[in-house]
Design a protein around this nucleic acid. Structure first.
Length: 556
RNA sequence: UGACCCGUGGUGUAAUUGGCAACACGUCUGGUUUUGGUCCAGAAGAGUCCAAGUUCGAGCCUUGGCGGGUCAACCA
């Protein structure tokens, strides 16, 4: 297939097509996904994963997984493991191309020495506040450090002493010698190395100086042969510095190129590691994998599938526009996926007991039910029916409004896959609350159709009392009540926390079929929504999460 | 009040070299239906931030505004 015939889906792909047309980098396409292992991945990372792996795949290129582990104070192996799990779960593979920025510590050191010798870097012994002060502000140029013009030979020795642990944290740093009057703050003699006497999760105590992001990232890209280094918009102003280091390093026509796109935002949630960490640490949620979290592990536990996350990623697209995507798009993606694949089952989450007074006591019929009307190959199952049932409390209304066409006294409805029933009596307790309904059934309507052709307006789900599995069901709502909780400069996002984001229903009854399920298996509870089995589930206490409700066309 | 980036229906994105602003989500109708789901048919909703300019013709090009974002961590 000719490259020219590939249609760009976004500006990055267009850029790649142009680069290919110009014959850049020998026609290679190589991307990388470079997380810092300092937390769990969220759906914004999923977008980046899909972008990097998906784009490379489209153009016959490769993608590396690289852990950007240049700050030992924040990074842990636990995070490395979870990130690899999440990338694989999403359906992508880096094959043998697993790298760490720490793999390059030696080369980065050598390159720094070279820059020092060339008079392009120097050791600065001023305190942090002074360096910061000298950098100035964006609207005014900075001033030179007194160490700026010290001799390269001295600096080589000083840098070696830094490396050998002669100095303490904060005593000195290595800075690039670029342009103290640049309008771009990142070019005002940026820090390349700082002293951190901290063990590193991979290099242990071999190093006590660590490269800064800006000094490490482009070089790692270069050494890995990355052609397109895709990152988010906030790195845009870093690009001149990225290019500056590459200019000092490159020795051929090959050069990696940084391209920025806008990060993902979704309504009614937050998408920054810092804020997510706060929610976890301060116990507003139950951990990183709380089903309300936009983390990949949270969404996975919630019941989102890799397919749904990938199609979501496709739908939101790639641009440089700062926006906020309606969470309804995400919900659409999981409904669309599960509608095709989810096993149907009946479950009553807010039960009211119903007695079919003219149905024989002790009789249990096994009725046929379709497993998935969207997929005949999924076959059928048997559902037990008997005299005592649970129905959804919401499906009965004592004084029905004219838009309500479910059950009420004197009205006939169909019980899915079984019989037509008619409500005859309401049973109340001492306080007058409705505790039970009495109905009669029409034996002629077995299977759900009346021989005389009469119709009913509603079909309700139900379960048989004796055979039902009692379960806990957790209902989730959006974490915040504001569409853009982090978007108010004057208000803290905690003010918008939704107090009802989790509702636990402990007395729910599900048809026995679900007993065969394993954690994370998902079902459609007919008429209610999609649910999956939570890992908290045990053999005597099943626990379900509501992934998402069904679209509800009922207008009250 | 420095530099850089971004402004297209409610939301997210499209629109070969300038050529009738398209798609998806959402919303609303109607049809089908043993899930008020799915599916099918249809509708409303922007004239592309504003203003000038170039042009037969501008969402695309030019200039100037306006609005939003990013940058002044020994974080990434």
């Amino acid at each position: 297939m000719e490259q020219e015939q590939i249609i760009a889906k976004n500006f990055i792909q267009q850029q790649i097509i142009d680069d290919l047309a110009e014959g850049k980098n020998g026609g290679r396409i190589h991307t990388r996904f470079p997380p810092e292992p300092n937390g769990y991945l969220h759906i914004g990372h999923a977008k980046s994963i899909c972008l990097n792996f998906g784009t490379a795949r489209k153009f016959g290129g490769l993608t590396n997984l690289r852990f950007d582990d240049t700050n030992p104070t924040k990074e842990e192996t636990e995070y490395v493991d979870s990130i690899m799990e999440d990338v694989r779960w999403l359906g992508f593979d880096w094959d043998e191309r697993l790298f760490y920025a720490s793999d390059y510590f030696d080369k980065l050191y050598e390159f720094a020495v070279k820059l020092i010798i060339e008079g392009k870097a120097y050791v600065d012994f001023q305190p942090q506040e002074v360096i910061s002060e000298q950098k100035g502000v964006p609207t005014r140029p900075g001033i030179d450090s007194p160490y700026r013009n010290s001799l390269p030979q001295e600096n080589v020795e000083l840098f070696a002493k830094m490396k050998n642990g002669f100095y303490n944290e904060g005593d000195c740093v290595l800075r690039g010698k670029i342009d103290m009057s640049s309008p771009n703050m990142h070019m005002r003699d940026p820090l390349m190395y700082r002293i951190l006497k901290q063990p590193h999760h991979r290099t242990g105590d071999k190093w006590c100086i660590y490269p800064m992001y800006d000094y490490a990232h482009g070089q790692c890209d270069y050494w890995e042969g990355i052609t397109h280094s895709i990152c988010t918009l906030e790195f845009e102003v870093h690009r001149p510095l990225y290019d500056w280091f590459i200019d000092q390093l490159k020795d051929s026509d090959y050069r990696p190129r940084q391209i920025e796109f806008s990060r993902l935002n979704i309504t009614y949630t937050v998408m920054s590691k810092r804020r997510l960490l706060q929610l976890v640490k301060e116990n507003y949620v139950n951990g990183w994998d709380d089903p309300r979290m936009p983390t990949i592990c949270g969404l996975r536990r919630r019941g989102y599938t890799p397919e749904s996350m990938r199609s979501f990623s496709d739908m939101v697209g790639i641009t440089k526009v700062d926006g906020i995507t309606d969470v309804a798009v995400l919900e659409y993606c999981i409904r669309e996926d599960l509608n095709k694949r989810a096993q149907r089952v009946m479950g009553v989450i807010d039960p009211i007991k119903v007695v079919i007074t003219n149905y024989p006591e002790g009789l249990v019929e096994e009725l046929d039910a379709v497993n998935n009307p969207e997929d005949e190959s999924m076959g059928k199952r048997k559902v037990p029916f008997s005299r005592e049932l649970y129905l959804e409390r919401e499906d009965f209304m004592e004084n029905p409004t004219n838009k309500f066409y479910r059950l009420s006294v004197g009205r006939e409805v169909r019980l899915r896959y079984s019989y037509f029933i008619k409500c005859t009596d309401i049973i109340r307790n001492g306080e007058g609350d409705i505790i039970e309904l009495h109905c009669t059934y029409d034996p002629e309507t077995k299977g759900g159709n009346a021989p005389d052709g009469r119709k009913v307006k509603a079909t309700l789900h139900w379960v048989a009392v004796a055979q039902a599995v009692k379960a806990e069901v957790r209902l989730y709502d959006r974490l915040f009540t504001d569409p853009d909780p982090a978007g108010h400069k004057d208000k803290d996002l905690l003010e918008f926390l939704n107090p009802d984001s989790l509702k636990v229903l402990s007395e729910c009854y599900i048809e026995p079929f679900v007993k065969n399920g394993k954690p994370l298996d998902s079902f459609q509870f007919e008429r209610l929504g999609y649910f999956n089995i939570d890992p908290d589930s045990t053999s005597n206490q099943m626990v379900f999460n509501r992934i998402v409700s069904l679209k509800d066309g009922f207008k009250k």
